[in-house]
């Protein structure tokens, strides 16, 4: 019992335990929000808000609306929850960028990832996991496309980053 408790706090959990817990929480999010968990819709609102500040977007999203959006707190919660999980196990540290090539790959990857997620209406969470969980055909097609994209990405990674 004590050993189990130690593993629960210190980790790592077996992958299947993580899957079960995430599945339960995913269903709870649906119950609370009346719509599934998603990440990039909220990121998009923040980025349009920021673009308006810079004068790049004409429409204005009031910051009060963003601060009262459920998605903001889900996203913030994921960051804080991971921070807490690392602190609880005494495993938190700032992990600086050690090689310049990973900085480029992060920026370019982020750009591709954000663009792709928004034209396909969802990321791995909103489009793939919850698209499939919603029994939508689009979710399955998106999953197939993501798998092919990952295959191309893996070739790029082998060529430039290893």
């Amino acid at each position: 019992m004590k050993e189990n408790w130690r593993t629960a706090v210190h980790g790592p959990w077996p992958y299947w335990v993580g899957a079960m817990v995430l599945g339960g929480l995913n269903i709870l999010v649906l119950l609370v929000r009346k719509r599934p968990w998603g990440v990039t819709t909220n990121l998009q609102d923040w980025s349009v808000w920021f673009a308006h500040l810079l004068g790049l977007a004409s429409e204005r999203i009031p910051v009060s609306q963003l601060l009262l959006a459920e998605g903001t707190y889900l996203n913030l919660g994921v960051v804080l929850g991971a921070l807490w999980a690392a602190l609880a196990a005494s495993q938190w540290r700032f992990r600086p960028l050690r090689q310049r090539k990973f900085g480029f790959s992060a920026l370019i990857g982020g750009l591709f990832l954000g663009y792709g997620a928004r034209i396909a209406y969802g990321c791995n969470v909103g489009g793939l996991l919850n698209g499939i969980a919603s029994s939508s055909l689009t979710g399955w097609v998106f999953a197939l496309a993501v798998f092919l994209g990952t295959w191309i990405g893996a070739k790029i990674l082998l060529k430039f980053l290893v």
């Binding site: 396909a120 998106f142 993501v146 092919l148 790029i156």
Partner: peptide
Amino acid sequence: TIVGGLLFGIGMVLAGGCA
């Protein structure tokens, strides 16, 4: 959906994480 999925897949490998 297809183009977005492909770009998203490439991007998440390079960025070291999905959203």
